[in-house]
Amino acid sequence: MKVLISFLVGAALVSYATLNIQQAAEPWAPKIMNMCLNPANSDTSGNLRVAYTGISNTLDRIICFYVNFNQQPLHDILGAPLMRLMMGAFGTSYAIMAFEGSRRGFKKTTLLAAFPLFGLLANFVGIFSVFSLLWIPMDLYYRGKKKDTSDWNITLPEAYGTLAGIVLGYGIPSAILASPLVKDDSSFEQDFICIWIVLPMIIIPFINVCIKFFKNQGSSIDQVRDPAFKERLYVAEGKDALERSFLFLGVLNMLNHFVNFWIVGQKGIRIWDSILLLLGAPGNLPADLTFGDLGQLLGTRTLLIDYIALSVGFVLWAVFNSGIFAGIMVILLTPIVGPAAAVSYYAYYRENKIQNIASAKTETEKAAGAAVAASSNRKKK
């Protein structure tokens, strides 16, 4: 029942947000689409460039539209900071999907196989639609089938390797793309966006390399002889690694949130007034706006709706997983630290609830917790 409700709520959210985006983008997006798809357009450079892959003329023309669409907020005074926030939220969503799919009981399910495809699809239809409409119901469906607590286990190499792969393979390129290092309207920017769109797929081998790297580092637990005790130690180690990963994402996104708000404030932009202006667009925009300025404003507005809808999706995930209290916690944290940091901190809280090894009563489990704590202390020293 919960799966069905989550799907219906997600469908309502996605339908409303998509309709809102389409209606507002009407004065600009269809015109750009027509320009890119126009057979008479054979530009190999410039804003309407249709030469990218050389594999398919149709594919290159579709890329032309998506490159133009993503360029608009990047060139806007408010859109650029918002794009950086959206990139952080996207990366966090992607990490959550990857972590959940990497748990022991989910490795042979669609949950693991789907996250690269979901990441790619999200760059075309919006991460809010993929996360809320597809991934949350699927996550709840498989969660309902897993009753054994061992199904929720994840190893340290999988946790840290996935985190490292996403941060290095997606986070850093995204930060470079949204920085002054990439010149506006340059062919390099266009090529970068073209690659960035498919990054969720092409970084999968890199994530596997990172996981293998952490596996090769070994662990002090490898020396333990008792198989049962050793297994408990691995479980505790993996749980600790996943919690640290969520905390890292929380801190990283919180810094991203604060820095970009500071940047916007330094430019003298009134954030709330700007948000209201964007939400009211295009009806409240001046009639003498150039086509380029109109594109930047409506592109930024599209990004804003995507960001808001994804924030609601984060709240829904918390509610359906842990109840109303968790959802309220995410809602209250969102204005303070940002939605991506809020859901990361919730995920840390959720991890404690899913598999609270510290609450176990057996001597073996107590010893496992003590061993992990001692190992952590040695690393700090």
Results as ranks from 00 to 15, higher is better:
residue 331 I to E: 04
residue 262 W to N: 06
residue 291 F to T: 11
residue 352 N to E: 09
residue 312 V to W: 02
residue 348 Y to V: 03
residue 256 N to R: 09
residue 267 K to N: 15
residue 295 G to C: 05
residue 281 A to H: 07
residue 319 V to F: 12
residue 315 V to E: 02
residue 295 G to W: 02
residue 265 G to F: 14
residue 276 L to F: 14
residue 300 T to M: 09
residue 315 V to H: 01
residue 343 V to M: 04
residue 322 S to P: 01
residue 352 N to A: 09
residue 323 G to P: 05
residue 313 G to D: 05
residue 237 E to Q: 15
residue 333 L to S: 11
residue 254 M to N: 02
residue 288 D to N: 15
residue 274 S to F: 00
residue 274 S to I: 01
residue 279 L to M: 15
residue 284 N to P: 09
residue 353 K to N: 06
residue 320 F to S: 03
residue 280 G to K: 15
residue 286 P to L: 03
residue 247 L to F: 08
residue 304 L to H: 07
residue 346 Y to V: 03
residue 353 K to G: 02
residue 266 Q to I: 00
residue 340 A to L: 08
residue 250 G to S: 06
residue 296 Q to W: 01
residue 288 D to H: 14
residue 309 A to E: 04
residue 285 L to V: 04
residue 261 F to K: 09
residue 253 N to R: 08
residue 332 L to S: 12
residue 301 R to H: 10
residue 346 Y to D: 12
residue 253 N to A: 05
residue 258 F to P: 00
residue 240 D to V: 07
residue 308 I to S: 03
residue 302 T to V: 09
residue 335 P to F: 03
residue 275 I to F: 13
residue 264 V to C: 06
residue 338 G to K: 11
residue 314 F to W: 14
residue 295 G to L: 10
residue 269 I to V: 15
residue 283 G to K: 13
residue 253 N to S: 06
residue 288 D to T: 10
residue 301 R to M: 05
residue 332 L to Q: 04
residue 276 L to A: 14
residue 286 P to E: 01
residue 244 R to H: 10
residue 313 G to Y: 12
residue 252 L to K: 01
residue 286 P to D: 04
residue 309 A to I: 10
residue 277 L to A: 08
residue 243 E to S: 09
residue 321 N to L: 08
residue 268 G to P: 08
residue 283 G to N: 13
residue 270 R to S: 13
residue 318 A to R: 06
residue 318 A to T: 08
residue 250 G to L: 06
residue 275 I to H: 05
residue 253 N to G: 06
residue 269 I to C: 06
residue 242 L to I: 15
residue 316 L to W: 00
residue 262 W to H: 09
residue 252 L to C: 02
residue 294 L to K: 12
